[in-house]
C-alpha cells in the first residue's frame, strides 16, 4: 500500500485533472441539455424533432463510440476544437489551452453524451408539474417562453434536481474513459501509468483511484439527499 503515500502527488494530479474535466463537462452538459430540453417541449414540431433526434442519437450510442468519434472524427474533419481555448477560463483549466487537443475532444464527447441525459432529467421535472399550471398560464396570454420561465421551470426544478444529480454522478464515473483517449494524467490514466510503466501492484493502485472518484461522487450524493429531505419538509 506504500504506493498511496509514495505516489501521492501522482494521485493528486490525476484527481485534479479529472475534477477539471468533470466541472467543465457538467457546466457544458447542463447548458446544452437545457437547450435540448426546451427544443423537445417546444410547440414547434420541427424543433421538437431536432431535440428528439439528438436524445435518440446520444442516449443510445455507447460513450466509447462517442469518444472515438470525437478523438478520431474531429481531426479527420480538420478540427482541433480550438474554439474551446476560451481566454480567461483556460488560465484556470490549463489543459483547455494546450496544443494537444485530446482534453478538448474528451470534453466534447462527455458533454454531447451527458446532455442527452440532462435533457431527459429536466423534461421529467417539467412533466411532473401539473398540466393545469401551464394551462392557466396560457389562458392568461403568457407566451411559451414566459410560461416556461415564470410558471413551469421554477416548479419543475424540485422534481429535476435528484435525477439531475444522478446524471452528473454517472458523468463523473464516465469521465474515466478519457484516459484511454489520449488524455494524459487523469485519474484513470494514473492507474495505467503506475501499474504498467512503473510496475506497482494493481490492487493498491486501484484502491487509490477508487478513493479519488469517491471523493467527488459521495459528497455530491450526500448533497442530493439533503436537498431531497429539505423538499420533503417543505411539502
Amino acid at each position: 500500500m506504500n504506493v498511496l503515500i509514495d505516489k501521492f502527488d501522482v494521485f493528486a494530479g490525476g484527481f485534479w485533472l479529472t475534477l477539471q474535466i468533470c466541472i467543465l463537462a457538467a457546466i457544458g452538459a447542463l447548458i446544452l441539455g437545457a437547450i435540448v430540453a426546451v427544443l423537445r417541449i417546444s410547440p414547434v414540431p420541427p424543433l421538437r424533432a431536432v431535440g428528439t433526434a439528438y436524445v435518440n442519437v446520444f442516449r443510445n450510442m455507447p460513450l466509447t463510440v462517442v469518444m472515438f468519434f470525437a478523438a478520431f472524427g474531429l481531426p479527420a474533419l480538420g478540427s482541433n476544437a480550438d474554439f474551446l481555448r476560451i481566454p480567461v477560463i483556460d488560465s484556470l483549466f490549463t489543459r483547455l489551452g494546450t496544443d494537444l487537443p485530446y482534453f478538448r475532444f474528451a470534453l466534447i464527447a462527455l458533454v454531447l453524451y451527458t446532455a442527452a441525459f440532462v435533457c431527459e432529467a429536466l423534461r421529467s421535472g417539467v412533466n411532473a408539474v401539473p398540466a393545469g399550471q401551464a394551462e392557466a398560464a396560457r389562458s392568461l396570454g403568457l407566451t411559451f417562453g414566459q410560461n416556461l420561465r415564470h410558471v413551469v421551470l421554477p416548479q419543475s426544478w424540485q422534481a429535476s434536481v435528484v435525477p439531475l444529480g444522478s446524471v452528473i454522478i454517472a458523468m463523473i464515473k464516465n469521465s474515466a474513459l478519457a484516459g484511454f483517449f489520449g488524455v494524459v494524467g487523469d485519474l484513470s490514466a494514473t492507474a495505467d501509468q503506475l501499474t504498467g510503466a512503473e510496475g506497482y501492484a494493481f490492487i493498491p493502485v486501484a484502491i487509490g483511484i477508487s478513493i479519488g472518484y469517491l471523493i467527488m461522487t459521495v459528497p455530491l450524493g450526500a448533497l442530493l439527499d439533503r436537498i431531497e429531505k429539505r423538499q420533503a419538509v417543505a411539502r
Binding site: G132, A136, A137, S139, G141, T143, V151
Partner: peptide
C-alpha cells in the same frame, strides 16, 4: 396569446400558480 389575454378563464381545479403568492398570481 393576445386573444387569450382578453378571455378570462376559471378552472374546476383553480390552477393557481403554486409557487407564487395570491397577489403574485393576480399580478403576473
Amino acid at each position: 396569446a393576445k386573444l387569450r389575454s382578453e378571455v378570462g378563464m376559471v378552472f374546476q381545479s383553480f390552477n393557481l400558480f403554486a409557487h407564487k403568492t395570491i397577489l403574485e398570481n393576480v399580478t403576473l
